[in-house]
Nucleic acid binder design. Structure first.
Length: 870
RNA sequence: GGGCGUUUAGCUCAGUUGGUAGAGCGCUUCCCUUACAAGGAAGAUGUCGGGAGUUCGAGCCUCUCAACGCCCACCA
């Protein structure tokens, strides 16, 4: 077994995170700590990573997503489950192909110059080179995934799964090929799906064009935002209830510029109040017109080609042929003007579809593509969310998911790219007959379809294709499928989560995971999305170098709210985690440094505990309970808060301080060790490094395999809260010191008039923590020239001789009374309200009454004091 | 057009079944007390976006208005 070397850190007063983190990760790797055992008989817990793109480099989104997954994995590992975090990458069809093409363009060549095979060879070479880069980067996050199982969406196993799924769906009639209008990206030269299309508002014009009636006088004026598509017009449509045009329905008109005659039809789709109420129908270049065209059996005339240029055919005037869409628009408008059929131009803001990948304006284009029939598949995917088989956290995303699923449209899965899973359809070279099959039936006579599949088609199979499917007997599949939790951002619920659910149910008959944990998106300090083009990105690698991985993880975790709000970050925010890591390091160092026998194991003796010991054990026990509850319910930010508060404000500020006066080393070490375990999932490296140095029996390789602390009845102590009264007293004395500027060098004496039993236990603490010289217990001390403080039902008198400024002291006391009286007033208001007393729960009423008594007594004591002073 | 989110201390944000508001940073005063100045001690700061309602009681539940943001739909 290799050892964790951290000797050089032993005495450093400032924690140098990176040295420890690098060493620690190496230690885990060398001991093969993350390897999942499919043969284990322990309960399984598994997560599949949302496969990052091969083209990608680590960004803040990965850092957050990865941290959250690692927390869940480490937590469940410590719950003694057999955990598998499955890593891998996505081949990212369009994104990768774009990168390669861009590189080629620098050399002045296109993919067509290379040809499909050479292009793919080049892309594979590049992918192989970059495939591991991003997963390597995940390591600096401390990711405890099982790299021996690393997968790639284009590897052999995934490719087989994709083929099988395609063929099966085709055979079930759920995949079909057809001519439909699709979103075409003229730059990517491919169809893209609806959700890969984003809409942007653009300033445009609404052109009103007059179409003369055929065989009679008069004309009909239509309004359009895209005059260049008019050459593909096949009809003019009006609303059947529109009296303006009632008489024209069924007649024909003559198109300007080309003279082609088209019918005037009636269709409900037309909005009477928009434009002129008459709409030109261009089925080949507009999705709505396409639908209208089908309803009326109209022809489809294509006038724009795949490059976004006007076609050279009989429908397009020679002057327009070959022009780009933009040029054609300008020229068409000019020609219409010359022909005096352009009636009106109005400014019009409208939405224009853009390619998600390259932001090129989409051309709705009639084209032959492959589609998945989604509606039948969506049924069960809706069910499992409705019946709670799959739970979204936060729950509000379920509504979002269901709305989308219930209005699902067929999914265009074919892409005219080269990089991806090729459609397993084969065409006979002579007859053109199509065969959809796992293999080419006869390579001499059949040629494979040239299209590839949407990247999300393969990532939709990710939870089971990585587990050995379609071999259902494979060990991983049996042990680790279905997976437990899926962790991702809301931006890919439709792209990815929805598809995994549908495909998982269809092919494995179970939901691929039971919980979908949706976290917010990382944004810059102004709430803007981070993007390279905006130049507002923060590189997690830089942050890690500056603050350390654990600091990054802790900070990010603390910012995760239960509602999954987006997370605004700036560089300085990570000081929070860095400071905390430093605190953990130093406190641990202090505790371990001062052990009387640094190497000896200490036994916790529950029969022999001081009030302080009971208090800290009790507090820790509560924390363990809350932390477990919050991890189970994905309130992960709360976990960080609770752990921070306990360690800093309870353990360090009080218990470790008290230990400088009187200490129970067994408790000090017990709390520290168990605390490190609680913290380990969030801050894995620092906790491991310290744990390795602790004088405890180590029956595990590292802290990562130890049992996660749970609530323990034995560690509850009823009277532990008394310690808080003690702290109140100490704070009150410190306050007196601060108010009267009494330097720490001069000791004070005090008289306590009540609760001798409690306070006599803590005299040593008072000496050290409040610089008290002498403590007297007496009922009516001489309070002349004294300051007074009241803690609950006890009055403490501090003779200050000439240091006291009586006016100041009276003021101080009056201020306290004012505060207490505000509360008393509100409490009296409640207690005097009969309805409150009768309808509020008894507990609440009793508590309120109790509080009233406390307040009255405290106020009484203070008033008494003021009287004596004045 | 439909849906969702946000609005709480100067800033960034928490606030888990309604019981009377918290953290971090910043700010004021004091302290280099040998674990930690990336620290310690003591403080100050809020009509919880506006209005109405339910309730003994509302930051939290209902309605309404306002501002900002996001998602879906894609009227040419």
């Amino acid at each position: 077994m290799s050892e964790l070397k951290t000797e050089n850190q032993e005495l450093a007063t400032v924690y140098s995170a990176r040295d420890i983190e690098v060493e620690t990760y190496k230690f885990w790797e060398e001991n093969d700590c993350f390897k999942a055992d499919a043969k284990s008989d322990k309960e399984a817990y598994s997560i599949v990573i949302p496969p990052p793109n091969v083209t990608g480099v680590l960004h803040m989104g990965h850092a957050l997503d990865g941290t959250l997954q690692d927390i869940l994995i480490r937590y469940n590992r410590m719950l003694q489950k057999e955990v598998l975090w499955m890593p891998g990458c996505d081949h990212a069809g369009i994104a990768t192909q774009n990168v390669i093409e861009k590189n080629l363009a620098k050399e002045g060549i296109s993919r067509h110059d290379l040809g499909r095979e050479r292009f793919l060879a080049k892309t594979w070479e590049w992918a192989e080179e970059h495939k591991n880069r991003i997963l390597e980067q995940f390591k600096i996050l401390g990711a405890s995934f099982d790299l021996s199982r690393k997968r790639f969406t284009l590897d052999e196993g995934c490719s087989n799964a994709v083929k099988k799924v395609f063929v099966d769906l085709y055979n079930k009639g759920l995949i079909y090929k057809g001519s439909y209008i699709v979103n075409w990206c003229p730059r990517c030269q491919s169809a893209i799906s609806d959700i890969e299309t984003n809409y942007e508002t653009e300033d445009g014009n609404l052109w009103e064009i007059s179409y003369a009636l055929k065989d009679e006088m008069g004309a009909i004026v239509i309004a359009t935002t895209r005059p260049e598509t008019m050459f593909g017009d096949v009809a003019i449509a009006v609303n059947p209830t529109d009296y303006k045009y009632k008489d024209l329905i069924g007649k024909e008109c003559v198109m300007p510029l080309t003279g082609r005659a088209i019918p005037i039809i009636a269709d409900d789709y037309v909005d009477k109040s928009f434009g002129t109420g008459a709409l030109k129908i261009t089925p080949a270049h507009d999705p709505n017109d396409f639908e209208v065209g089908l309803r009326h059996n109209l022809p489809q005339i294509k006038v724009i080609d795949e490059k976004g240029c006007m076609m050279k055919n009989e429908f397009v005037p020679p002057q327009i042929q070959g022009l780009t869409r933009e040029e054609a628009r300008e020229k068409t408008v000019k020609m219409l003007e010359e022909n005096q059929v352009l009636i009106k131009i109005t400014k019009h803001v409208h939405n224009v579809g853009k390619c998600q990948r390259c932001n090129t304006t989409i051309e709705p284009l009639l084209s032959k593509q492959w589609f998945v029939k989604m509606e039948p598949l969506a049924k069960r995917a809706i069910e499992v969310v409705k019946d709670g088989t799959i739970k979204f956290i936060p729950q509000r995303w379920e509504k979002n998911y269901l709305m989308w699923m219930e209005n699902i449209r067929d999914w265009c899965i074919s892409r005219q790219l080269w990089w991806g899973h090729r459609v397993p359809a084969y065409y006979h070279n002579q007859t053109g007959e199509m065969v959809v099959a796992l293999e080419n039936p006869d390579p001499n006579n059949y040629t494979q379809d040239t299209d590839v599949l949407d990247t999300w088609f393969s990532s939709g199979l990710w939870p089971f294709e990585t587990m050995g499917w379609p071999v259902k007997t494979s060990e991983d599949y049996k042990k680790f499928y279905p997976t437990n939790t899926l962790v991702t951002g809301f931006d890919i619920i439709f792209f990815w989560v929805a598809r995994m659910i549908t495909m998982g149910l269809e092919f494995t008959d179970v939901a691929p995971f039971s919980t979908v944990y949706i976290h917010g998106l990382i944004r810059d300090e102004h709430g803007q999305k981070m993007s390279k083009s905006k130049g507002n990105t923060i590189d997690p690698v830089d942050l890690i170098e500056k603050y350390g991985t654990d600091a990054l993880r802790f900070t990010l975790t603390s910012l995760c709210t239960y509602g999954g709000q987006d997370i605004k970050i700036s560089d300085e925010k990570f000081e929070f985690g860095r400071n905390f890591a430093n605190k953990v390091w130093n406190a641990s160092r202090f505790v371990l440094m001062n052990l009387t026998k640094p190497k000896e194991e200490l036994k916790l003796d529950l029969a022999n505990l001081s009030l302080a010991d009971k208090w800290i054990l009790n507090e820790f026990n509560e924390v363990a309970k809350i932390v477990n509850e919050n991890l189970e319910t994905y309130r992960i930010g709360e976990v960080a808060t609770v752990l921070y508060d306990f360690f800093w404000n309870k353990y360090c500020d009080w218990y470790v301080e008290l230990s400088k006066i009187e200490k129970n080393e067994a408790v000090l070490v017990y709390i520290l060790e168990n605390y490190l375990r609680l913290l380990h999932p969030i801050m894995p490296h620092i906790t491991e490094a310290i744990w390795q140095k602790m004088p405890i029996e180590k029956d595990k390789v590292g802290i990562l395999f130890t049992q996660y602390p749970q609530f323990d009845e034995k560690l509850t102590f009823k009277d532990a809260k008394n310690m808080e009264t003690v702290f109140e007293l100490i704070k009150a004395l410190r306050n007196v010191r601060a108010e009267f500027n009494i330097p720490l060098g001069s000791m004070i004496n005090i008289s306590i008039d009540n609760n001798e039993e409690l306070y006599s236990q803590i005299i040593p603490y008072l000496k050290r923590l409040a610089k008290v010289e002498d403590v007297k217990f007496e009922k009516n001390p001489n309070s002349e020239k004294s300051a007074t403080c009241v803690v609950e039902d006890t009055k403490i008198t501090i003779p200050l001789a000439d240091l006291i400024d009586l006016d100041q002291e009276i003021k101080r006391q009056q201020k306290k009374i004012e505060k207490l009286e505000i509360e008393l007033k509100s409490i009296n208001g409640r207690l005097n309200n009969e309805k409150f007393v009768s309808s509020a729960p008894k507990e609440v009423v009793d508590k309120t009454k109790e509080r009233k008594e406390e307040l009255l007594s405290e106020i009484g004591l203070i008033e008494e004091t003021i009287k004596k002073l004045s």
